[in-house]
């Protein structure tokens, strides 16, 4: 576990360094907020309405497919590391696994899910 101490330290050090930079810049920068300056930017017009709206969320489908393939990658990592010791059996197993997932991708493709317009 000692290797992973570095990860923890880097997490806190990273956050600390960024917050310190913010703090340091706060000491030397001007601060003069007023109402017009604090408006949202919308090409110098007054902002119309809120941006927290029901958004056309095409992203959702892609996120779902991404999760499928990322979970697949989680399975592929141990396979890739141990592959040298496993031989032909592992290769065929993995080809079957990949082909099933590619088949799923083609299904999504034919259903027109992968269109972004």
């Amino acid at each position: 576990m000692e290797q992973y101490l570095a990860v923890l330290i880097f997490l806190f050090a990273g956050i600390g360094l960024v917050l310190f930079t913010f703090f340091f810049s706060r000491l030397i920068r001007p601060a003069n907020p007023y109402k017009a300056k604090n408006q949202n930017y919308e090409c110098a017009e007054k902002p119309i309405g809120d941006s927290w709206i029901k958004f056309n969320n095409r992203f959702y489908i892609f996120a779902l497919i991404f999760v499928v393939f990322d979970v697949e990658a989680v399975f592929l990592f141990p396979w890739a590391v141990a592959f040298g010791r496993l031989g032909l059996y592992a290769l065929i197993e993995m080809i079957i696994f990949i082909v099933i997932l590619i088949f799923g991708l083609f299904y999504a493709w034919k259903r027109g899910v992968l269109k972004w317009v």
């Binding site: 913010f22 340091f24 810049s25 030397i28 920068r29 001007p30 601060a31 907020p33 300056k37 604090n38």
Partner: peptide, 10 residues
């Protein structure tokens, strides 16, 4: 580093 940090009110 010296630029004003504007946080819009909304």
């Amino acid at each position: 580093l010296q630029k004003e940090d504007i946080t819009p009110s909304t």
